[in-house]
Write a protein that binds this DNA or RNA. Structure first.
Lengths: 250, 250
DNA sequence: TTGTACATCTCGGGT
DNA sequence: ACCCGAGGTGTACAA
């Protein structure tokens, strides 16, 4: 059995057969078609007739892409249930999600191409430069925050949220560190402030430090007004070594 | 010229020809292939060999989808520049974004299908149930917040951010309203608190009201502790009437 | 360009 | 199931 089957300008019968085979074999399905799209769930939307790419993944993911933008114009997340039927002379693909209840319907008016793909993939993305790696770096090298800084805990749940990094400075003050892998904004300052204020209820001399590669003007002003601090640090990028399934060295 | 061209198991020459035609005619390109993916930019990633769907849109958007999840495993946003070349016996598609500088390379090891699609689409999504519509509703019907409430401004930029809705209550107090179209969380409370504190520097008796369909436990506790208020209101869903290009009535 | 906040955010991790 | 926060977030909008 081949990995891919495709039909150009399929008849209704060919289309239905291919869709059925795609679903049964848990293939990934791609359709080029003129269609309308109806969605109702957390919000509600209508999309008039036009040419789009429809993709259905074997995990239930449903995507409708227009010819522009990174984001699908309509979609359904993994775990949704797909079905199709004929209605008023056109094939309709329906995706149902329960909880929250959401329904997505694509009304295929003219199908230019339909294809199914039995994709085999056992690899996962190995990414570096994340906030998690930034945290690991600072936890292992606390002096990067400032001389004399000692790390106490990471990802610590205080009642008012989860603090990235908790430590003490050379003067014995409690220090809350909030990390951002990109330019810090007002949101980041509010977050740090929330943690600092929560800890100040039970501790004296609590400092708050926002660590990010840079900070917006507005955020900087708010930060200073609140007596909080900023340290410019960029997220580290690991080298290729040590990626993926790490082979034990002996 | 037809809307779609596709080739199954293309030879290198067929693939290169189709890619070139796709780029020149500003078509949307979809490829089913076993490939590796390399990314470097804001972060850095590697993805080992596996079967994926590659999509290139005429606006420069680049997507690599695995067989699961809603999100592409790698991508490049609109405005990126695409090119391709042959390297070590395989075809490589490269997408370059300047600012921030980011490069994405897909190394095609085995192409099962390639297709190009001259999509025509003049329709835009009409969506209802957004926060913007919630705001409009409350601005026009301020009594929904509470009896005697009068709206003063919406989307108002105070120094510390942009307030959703500003008004006065029956007692003449300034009221800041923060809207959320879904369950409000700690972030929402922090946001509201930031606005309230900024306004309290120049006004007395400032109230803060969080308006959302519901609220998380943690957020509720913080809200009450801070003397802020909550009103349960759901975002409205418009009916079909009045969607899309609204024709002037005379 | 920068700043700010929404999103049918999605996704993962924790409890 | 809920809660919480990151994300190469993307996207729109305003200054």
């Amino acid at each position: 059995m081949s990995k891919v089957k495709s039909v150009l300008n399929p008849s209704r019968g060919e289309l239905l057969d291919l869709l059925e085979e795609g679903l049964i074999t848990r293939s990934l399905i791609v359709i080029f078609a003129r269609c309308k799209v109806h969605y109702d769930g957390r919000a509600k939307s209508e999309l008039g007739s036009g040419d789009r790419v429809v993709m259905v993944k074997p995990d239930g993911t449903f995507l409708v892409h227009q010819k522009e933008k990174r984001e699908p114009v309509n979609w359904q997340p993994p775990g949704s249930f797909i079905s199709f039927h004929v209605e008023d002379d056109s094939v309709v693909i329906r995706s149902l999600r329960k909880k929250p209840r959401e329904i997505l319907e694509v009304e295929l008016e003219d199908v230019y191409m339909a294809a199914i793909f039995r994709a085999e993939d056992y690899e996962a993305l190995a990414l570096t430069g994340s906030e998690a790696e930034m945290l690991e770096m600072l936890f292992n090298n606390p002096e990067l925050i400032e001389p004399g800084f000692r790390a106490l805990a990471k990802e610590k749940d205080i009642g008012r949220g989860i603090v990235d990094l908790l430590g003490r400075d050379s003067g014995g003050n409690l220090v809350v560190v909030e990390l951002k892998r990109r330019k810090a904004d007002l949101h980041a300052v509010s977050q740090l402030k929330r943690y600092v204020e929560a800890l100040r209820k039970e501790n004296e001399n609590v400092r708050g430090i926002l660590v990010a590669p840079s900070i917006t003007e507005g955020a900087k002003k708010l930060l200073e007004k609140e007596g909080l601090e900023f340290r410019a640090i960029k997220p580290p990028k690991r080298e290729k070594r040590g990626w993926g399934r790490q082979t034990t060295l002996f």
